[in-house]
Amino acid sequence: MTEQRTDPVVVVAGALVDEGRLLAARRSTPAELAGRWELPGGKREPGESSEEALVRELREELGVETEIGERVPGEWVLKPGYVLWVWAVRLRSGRPAPQQEHDELRWLTRDELDSVDWLDQDRPAVAEAAARLLPANSPAS
């Protein structure tokens, strides 16, 4: 019997930063995730590049047009067979508002990141994105 290799399902997320703050989205569905926070995004569809999927997902979830920047180094296991990839994202047009799967959005500074209950699987990705994209809040020496 030969072993069959199955590539993981890629879930893409955007680290949307504006004025030194990171956008967090609170899940409203499914029930087991409701009330917890994540970086917005979703699953890549067959035939889509990861970047195309992220632009589509952010349009659907937030009602905005975005420009995808560099990928944040790392790959985080969400559950068996699913991995999270994160990109730096810049807002091109629109104002983020919950469209589907979320009921609240918050812009968080680096010092405020722990003020929301992130999904466990998103925590390391948020930390990595914040370290690279958000300004340090300590005074310059």
Rank of each mutant, 00 (worst) to 15 (best):
M1G: 10
T2I: 13
T2K: 09
E3T: 04
R5D: 04
R5K: 10
T6P: 02
D7W: 13
P8N: 09
V9R: 14
V11R: 11
V12I: 08
V12R: 11
A13T: 01
A15Q: 13
A15D: 09
A15R: 04
L16V: 00
V17D: 05
D18H: 13
D18F: 08
L22N: 03
L23F: 07
L23Q: 11
A24I: 08
A25R: 01
R26T: 01
R26F: 07
R26I: 02
R26P: 00
R27G: 00
R27Q: 05
T29S: 02
P30T: 11
P30C: 02
A31I: 07
L33F: 14
L33V: 04
R36F: 07
R36G: 08
G41I: 03
R44M: 12
E48T: 08
E48Q: 13
S49I: 12
S50P: 06
E51M: 01
A53H: 11
L54C: 11
E57S: 02
E57Q: 15
E57H: 14
L58I: 00
E60I: 05
G63C: 05
V64G: 03
V64H: 01
E65D: 15
E65M: 13
T66A: 15
E67P: 04
I68P: 04
I68Y: 12
G69P: 07
G69K: 11
R71P: 14
V72N: 07
P73R: 15
P73S: 15
P73K: 15
G74T: 03
E75D: 08
E75G: 11
W76D: 03
W76Q: 05
W76A: 06
K79C: 06
K79W: 10
P80G: 09
P80I: 10
P80E: 08
G81C: 04
L84I: 04
W85T: 07
W85M: 08
R90Y: 09
L91C: 02
R92A: 10
S93Q: 02
S93R: 15
S93C: 11
R95E: 13
P96W: 00
A97L: 09
P98Q: 01
P98D: 01
P98M: 07
Q99D: 02
Q100V: 00
Q100P: 02
E101T: 12
H102F: 02
L105D: 01
L105F: 01
R106T: 12
T109C: 05
R110P: 03
R110Q: 02
R110I: 06
D111E: 13
D111L: 12
S115L: 13
V116S: 12
D120C: 00
Q121R: 15
P124G: 03
P124A: 08
E128S: 14
E128G: 09
A129K: 09
A131V: 15
A131K: 10
R132D: 10
R132P: 01
R132L: 14
L133G: 10
L134A: 10
P135I: 01
A136Q: 05
N137Q: 15
P139Y: 14
